[in-house]
């Protein structure tokens, strides 16, 4: 059987809860369909991968610390892109998701890792936003634009979310 392009690539640029959920539903779905899935996290998307515990980061500059404080730490802290209502929106959506048996974002991330979805953190945007490897979840790859483009060339589905 000839299979030339069997990849799905995704740039996760936004750090909104709703967009992150959509990204992970597509990623896990694609993995279930036998695709080689690569998610490339850049800029606000990196916040989806943050651990929720505070990392002291004594080696951080003043600005890096500020960024770290202001940005959401991980899937439980993300805001909605619409109807956020100062945090009430995500609470309501999580309740609705639970009622409809939709997995939580955290569970979806674990499921994606279990299905061998490759998650890549963009090192350039990590530097720009002052994020360190120890602040992000385990099991990530660290790379730049060339790695993403090389993966995208092997894909027939490519999304920017």
């Amino acid at each position: 059987m000839e299979e030339t392009k069997n990849g799905t690539t995704m740039v996760v640029f936004d750090g909104d809860l709703d967009k992150a959920i959509a990204s992970f539903i597509i990623a896990t779905g694609a993995a279930a369909m036998g695709k080689n899935v690569t998610m490339f996290f850049t800029f606000w998307g990196l916040n989806v991968l943050r651990k929720d515990n505070v990392i002291s980061g004594s080696d951080k500059t003043m600005m890096e610390k500020m960024f770290g404080k202001m940005m959401p730490r991980g899937p439980e802290k993300l805001a909605l892109s619409k109807m956020n209502f100062g945090g009430m929106g995500p609470k309501m959506m999580k309740k609705m998701m639970k009622n409809h048996n939709v997995s939580s974002l955290k569970e979806m991330i674990e499921m994606a890792q279990d299905l061998d979805v490759k998650m890549v953190a963009c090192t350039m945007s990590m530097d720009v936003m002052g994020l360190k490897e120890e602040e992000l979840i385990d099991g990530l790859d660290y790379a730049g634009v060339a790695s993403y483009l090389a993966e995208a060339e092997e894909s027939n589905i490519n999304l920017f979310i």
Binding site: G29, A32, S103
Partner: peptide, 11 residues
């Protein structure tokens, strides 16, 4: 189970 779990389970 909601989307995408049925296909994930099937796979």
């Amino acid at each position: 189970l909601a989307c995408p779990m049925p296909v994930v389970k099937a796979k």
